[in-house]
């Protein structure tokens, strides 16, 4: 009986002459559909769940170059947070991440607002603002490395033009290298934010604009106090995507500075790769990667709240 109900609940036509048995239901019925869905199920179970749990487990071992270490509890994490290189990496990512997030969001939104003023050649401008996003982090890093080259790049150009005191050596300056990274990173990422924000702006009902105009509210206030709160969904989604991308920051740093000068532009993703494949300290690398995972989940929380949380009456 239960089998029939089960099948009926799924809304599938059931072969009339023979009520399918449990095994039949599990394996034979809609066989092609099951075969087709196998990759997704396997990827979720083996890679996303299995590999993550595996990494979490081995982050509690003292594995060196092979995953065969003994269980050592939180030792790897204690070592991680007392390691100078990790502390630099983590603070760098925090500084760079916050600046980058604020910067790309604000600039992206402003560009979207400007593009929304019924300007001419809109698609042309959009193409220009978005093309960096089509480039890889490596390409972005190398171009900016060249532009910011202190001996032959922007600095020498400006000096050659007469500003002999012009200094722009951020890329080789321990204190400023993160801002060099910021320049390259925001150049790469603002177009993406702009496109999403523009889609959000276009989704706002035209009636809202008419009502605001009738009430005599100035345009900037309409944007700030009416349109922006209405775009909450788009903004949270963008924040989550950009934020979780920032945690992964890797190739841009490899190409632009390779972590230097010294350790001053190291990031966690680089720390993990270095300990995993070069320094042969797997336990340490996996502990670091687990902390990265935790950071991503902290970023995910606002999205989960908006998506699955109690819906407020508007």
């Amino acid at each position: 009986m239960t089998d029939i109900q089960h099948a009926g609940a799924l809304g599938r036509p059931v072969t009339a002459d023979r009520p399918p048995g449990l095994l039949h239901n599990l394996f034979v019925r809609n066989l092609s559909a099951k075969v087709a869905a196998t990759p997704m199920v396997v990827i979720v179970l083996v890679v996303f769940i299995g590999c993550t749990l595996w990494s979490l487990w081995f982050s509690f071992t003292d594995s060196r170059s092979l995953p065969n270490g003994a269980f050592v509890g939180w030792e790897q994490y204690e070592r991680l947070f007392s390691a100078r290189r990790w502390r630099i990496s983590a603070t760098n990512l925090l500084t760079y991440g916050i600046f980058s997030l604020v910067f790309t969001m604000v600039v992206g939104f402003l560009l979207a607002v400007l593009m929304d003023q019924k300007i001419r050649f809109e698609s042309g401008f959009r193409t220009i603002f978005l093309y960096p996003f089509a480039l890889s982090g490596i390409v972005t890093g190398l171009v900016w490395q060249w532009i910011m080259n202190p001996t032959l790049g922007l600095q020498s150009t400006m000096r050659g033009l007469g500003w002999t005191n012009f200094t722009f050596d951020w890329i080789t300056n321990t204190d400023m290298v993160l801002y060099a990274l910021l320049i390259a990173g925001t150049w790469h990422g603002t177009g993406f934010v702009m496109v999403l924000m523009l889609a959000g702006l276009r989704g706002v009902d035209e009636e809202i604009w008419k009502a605001a105009r009738v009430d005599g509210i100035p345009t900037w206030r309409t944007y700030l106090q009416i349109v922006l709160p209405m775009m909450r969904g788009v903004i949270v989604t963008t924040l989550v995507i950009v934020g979780s991308g920032l945690v992964r920051t890797y190739d841009l740093v490899v190409a632009l500075t390779n972590g230097g000068p010294g350790l001053s532009s190291e990031v966690p993703a680089k720390y993990v790769i270095n300990y995993m494949f070069n320094a042969g300290n797997l336990g340490q690398a996996l502990a670091a990667s687990s902390v990265m995972l935790a950071a991503v989940f902290v970023i995910l929380i606002p999205w989960i709240v908006v998506e699955f949380g109690p819906k407020k009456a508007r």
Binding site: A37, M40, V41, I43, V44, V47, F48, I49, G50, C51, T52, W54, S55, F58, P67, V240, S244, V247, R248, A269, V272, I273, M276, L282, A285, L286, A288, S289, S290, M292, L293, V296, F297, L300
Partner: peptide
């Protein structure tokens, strides 16, 4: 499984790299 798949896209690659 689909929800898991979407959540999985946020896991940093470094976490799954070695097992892969």
């Amino acid at each position: 499984f689909f929800t898991c798949l979407l959540l999985g896209s946020f896991i940093p690659y470094q976490v799954m790299l070695y097992p892969m």
